[in-house]
Simulated scan of single mutants.
Amino acid sequence: MKCPNCDSKNLGRIGNDHYYCWNCCLELSVEKGKININQIEEDGSLSSLNDIFYQSGS
């Protein structure tokens, strides 16, 4: 698996179907065959970046 942001294979597994990219510091999770991309905020919360990576075709 590669990071959809930086195309790196430098991913660490942090749980079942949850990964962390060591190059661009994003958390990735796989759910029903789709990769969800989250940014980790300073307070430890996650902000979804799916809207940036998966824009609708409208």
Rank of each mutant, 00 (worst) to 15 (best):
G33F: 02
G12I: 09
C25E: 04
N16M: 12
K32C: 14
Y20F: 11
N50D: 14
L28R: 00
N10L: 06
D43V: 00
N38S: 07
S56M: 10
S29F: 01
S48K: 09
Y20C: 00
N50C: 08
S8C: 03
W22F: 13
C25Q: 08
I35K: 07
K32H: 15
C3E: 03
W22N: 11
D7M: 11
C6H: 09
S47H: 12
F53H: 08
G12Y: 05
C21T: 04
D51C: 06
S58H: 15
E41R: 08
C24A: 07
C21H: 01
K34I: 04
G44P: 11
S45V: 08
L49H: 10
R13C: 09
Y54A: 01
K2N: 06
Q55T: 13
Y20E: 13
W22K: 15
S58P: 15
N5A: 09
G33R: 03
I52N: 05
G57T: 10
L28M: 01
S8P: 04
G44L: 07
R13D: 09
I40R: 12
L28D: 00
N5E: 06
N5G: 02
N38D: 11
S47D: 07
E31G: 08
M1L: 05
S58M: 13
Y54N: 02
S29L: 00
S58Y: 15
L49R: 07
C6P: 07
I40Y: 10
L46A: 11
N10W: 10
S48Q: 08
D17G: 05
F53T: 10
Y20L: 06
Y54L: 05
Y54V: 04
F53P: 03
C25L: 02
L26F: 15
I52L: 07
C21I: 03
E42C: 07
G15K: 10
G44N: 13
G12Q: 10
S45A: 14
H18C: 15
I35M: 08
Q55E: 08
G15Y: 15
N10H: 09
D43N: 13
